[in-house]
Every structure is written in C-alpha cells, then in structure tokens.
Design a protein around this nucleic acid. Structure first.
Lengths: 258, 258
DNA sequence: ATGAACAATTAACTAATTGTTAATCGTTTA
DNA sequence: TAAACGATTAACAATTAGTTAATTGTTCAT
C-alpha cells in the first residue's frame, strides 16, 4: 500500500476547488525629512498603494477599477505565495531581496466578485529611494504613498481595508517587539535615527527621551556599537554608529515595567 | 463600465487554479500534574496529533498513511479557512468557541503529492479535559498528545514538520508577549498557576522566582486581583485569585531590561 | 491540642535601572 | 571667536529587581 496507489485514486475534480490564488503586498517605507543638515531626521511611516486602472492589459474593463489597492497578483502553480509576493514586488517597485513577511490569509466567501479567490497578505519593508524608480504596470494607473492616518480613509478595493488595517497593526508590533526595524535603517545607524524610526509607531517616553534612549541603546544585547565608526549626518559633532546583532529576542510582557 | 461588465469577461478556466484548499490545526493543551493536594501544578505543553489511517472513508488507500499529522481537512467554498478550522476542531475534539489563531500558509510546490494543495495553518488552545472526549474519525486511526520535545522526532506527514516547528515557535512567543495564556487557565487563577504555565516556555528567573513573580503580578495592568476570591487548590492557606483584564499590551524590546 | 509542613505573602536590604535636569564635548558657521 | 546644537556624560532621587529571611494560614499526623 503505497502513496502511489493512493494517488491514483485521488481526483480533485470530485469537489470544488478555488478559482484563484493570489498574493498581495503591503509595501511600507519610511519617508525621512531632514529639516537641515547635521540634524536628526523626522520620519513618517507610509504605505504604497496603486490605483486600479480602468482597463486591464487585454483592454477589458478592470475589476474594482479606480479604487486604491495593494499591489499583488496571481500565484503561479510552480511558485509559493511568498515567491509570488517577491516577484510582484520586484515587478512593481524594482526591489528584490528585501524583507517580506506573510501575515494572513483573506478568504471570506464573497470577498472577490470574480469567484472563490484567496489572497495571501504580506508586508514588505523597502527603503524610500527604491520607490523612486517605481513604474506603473498595465494594471496600475497610479502609484502613491499614504500616511498611516490617511490610508484608511480612502476608497479601497476588495477587502483591502481589513488587510491594510491588520498590516499596520502587525508592522507596528513587529517594529517594537522584534528587530525588523533594521530593515528601515542603513546597516550602520545612530541612536537618533533608530529613535526617530521607533517614534513613528510609539510615544513611549523611554524612547522619546534622548538621554534615556542614548543610554539604553548601549545595553541592548541585539545592538552593538561599531568601534571607531562615526558619522556627522545627524549632528555636527561626530556620532557613534551602531549595528544590529543577529539574535532574536523575546521579552515577556510579564517582566516589563508599567 | 461596471464591475458587472468586468465580471462577465473574467474566466478562471484560462489559467491554472489550485487543486485543493485545506486548513490544519495544531491543537495545544497543557497537561497539569498536581503531585499532591494543596500544591501548585507542574504543567507541560503538549500537542495533539493523529495517526493517519491506512484506508480512508471510501475504503481506498490513504495518502501519507501511518504517519503522524495535524488534524485538518478541506475548506468548503461557502466557508473561510478559519471557519473550516473551527469546524474541524469541533469534529475532532468536540470543542468549540475556543481560541484559534491563524499563523501561516504552506504552499510550497510539491508539498502534497496529490497536486497543488494549499494549507492554512492554525493553532488552537484547548483545555485538557476537552481532549478526553476526543474521538477518532474515519481518517484518524489514533490520537495522542506529545510533548514539545518529542514531537519533532516523529515521522510526520507532508510538511507538517515545518508547520509544527513554526506553531511551537508562535505559541511560545504569544504566551510570553500577549495575553493568550488566559486560554490555558480558568477565569480565576492563582499566581502559581500562571507561573507554572509560563514556565513551560521560559526559564526567566523573574518568572521562576516565587517571590518576584508574586510581587510582580500585582503591578501588571492586564491582570487584576478578584476582591475576596480565594482558593485552596494550590495551597493549604487560601490564595488570592486573579483574572485577566481585556486590554492588549505591546511592550517594546527597546525598553526591556537585559 | 500541638507542632511539623508547606504555599502564600510580607519584610528587608542591596544592587541596578529609570526619569530628569544640568553640564560638557566637538564641530560648524556666522 | 563665540553662538548654536546634537551627542554624550554626570549626577541624583525615585523606583524596581533579585535575594534571603521571616511570617501567616491552614492541613494533617501524632
């Protein structure tokens, strides 16, 4: 009794199967405003959306045309949903080998009027400069960055409201509870750059106080100073550069201070 | 140019679609050994697996027969993957309205020899007593609980090794960084019961020290003492009972102590 | 009754960390 | 040459953590 034997008896046409399998990507970036030279940046977390074109590549009326949506597309049989997300992100923004993370599946019956279509939701973190060379493809009429506050007020396609809401929630938690922050920063960064980044998603006084945060960063086991490396990009006096150490940290909420 | 018009032009038979869509559930429970009356319990985190039967319901050779696997099954067109997980968990264990959480999709090409079959991975938390009345269904020859250490040494079906590894990782993190622990405990619990639970996934001295933990629990904003409620189930002298308060907590790793 | 046993709780103390304000440093620029 | 300013260090009181020891409340064996 082998798997071969079992396989010969299996026939997927006996029951209904999905009509489509897609991957969507919430592409986050940080826009960094440096008000003047030698000052720390002010950062804002932004999400990239595309406006769905009126006509698709075949010249037919496009589904959910004119609404804002996450970039994405159909998964091919020879790839995983994750690989499809990588491919589509590359097609959409020209960015590859970047941080992408799966965070959910959206499959509520009726979510897509075309039929039983499932989507994998991912979020990606890309540096701002890589979005400059983004190009609209056939399906995407416009591409734009929205701040976290404004994005949920837009008219969004399909169930992308729910997906985006969860994406924002997820990246906020991950930024604070994991070391994904490193994907928004250069390899070597100053304490004030990391601080500016974290302040896009929290108001914790332990982070917003310069003195406390500068003191704290030296004790974090997943960050280390790079000996001798300094920069002047955030201040006139040369500032110590730090880098992430590749360990993963899980800190219980039961031992934190409140 | 309406969605109607666009829909009439959409034909999913033009491209290949998945051959099946399933949901699997990693069912965790805590087995609680109370060594004697009036003592705190020793707890162990366990995962429920089923041994795949040699023949399926139709009397045909079953796929991946004889291996240990996560319970699960096909998602129906009228339900979401999450609802399918709920339904299957209920069929498998008789448990409903319990904590279930989606944590990943497994869709690597070739993962299932029957074709392009995707699975949604969930984990569920069920009280130990509910697994007593579990019943084997047609596909499941045997049902057994395995400790976290031994489960990864078994011969597992499909890519369930990967799924289980991630499930363990996820529940460990969630137990420490969220308030899911409440799903393993009675509504009112003592500090030593919560402590025993957390010690199944961490060795943090701040948790393993009775004195520190008993002092700390009073300051946690998501746990409160239930006035006047005491129990003797963990000690001869009546012990204060606590309950979870329904707020969610996100504590940055950047402000923790190391 | 009496005391041993034991989990829960409190006390007490030292060490470490935090929030805060103030001072100092290094460099640019007017 | 000094003002400006971010980075860094100093200093200190307040809080918290880790630890050991003592106390409390109850059961149970004698």
């Amino acid at each position: 009794m082998s798997n071969q034997e079992a396989l010969s008896q299996y026939d997927s046409s006996l029951f209904r199967t999905p009509d489509g399998y897609t991957s969507d990507i919430a592409v986050f970036t940080i826009t960094s405003h440096q008000l003047a030279e030698y000052t720390p940046p002010k950062m804002t977390l932004k999400l990239m959306l595309i406006k769905r074109a009126l006509l698709n590549a075949e010249g037919q009326t496009n589904i959910e045309a004119g609404k804002w949506a996450l970039p994405g597309g159909f998964v091919q049989a020879a790839e995983s949903g994750f690989e499809a997300a990588e491919r589509e992100l590359e097609e959409e923004t020209g960015v590859s080998s970047i941080h992408i993370k799966h965070f959910g599946v959206y499959d509520k019956p009726g979510r897509d009027p075309r039929g039983w279509i499932l989507t994998n939701a991912h979020y990606a973190i890309v540096p701002e400069h890589s979005l400059v060379k983004r190009k609209a493809n056939d399906d995407a009429a416009e591409v734009e960055l929205f701040s976290i506050d404004e994005v949920l007020t837009l008219e969004l396609a399909f169930d992308h409201y729910d997906i985006i809401k969860e994406a924002i929630n997820r990246i906020t938690n991950d930024l604070l509870q994991t070391t994904v922050a490193q994907n928004f920063l250069p390899n070597y960064f100053t304490y004030s750059e990391l601080q500016a980044l974290l302040l896009t998603v929290t108001k914790d006084p332990a982070i917003s106080s310069d003195q406390s945060f500068a003191r704290k960063i030296k004790t974090l086991p997943f960050i280390q100073a790079v000996p001798g490396e300094k920069t002047q990009r955030t201040s006139k006096s040369p500032t110590q550069l730090y880098e992430f150490v590749d360990i993963d940290v899980v800190k219980p909420i039961y031992t934190a201070r409140y």
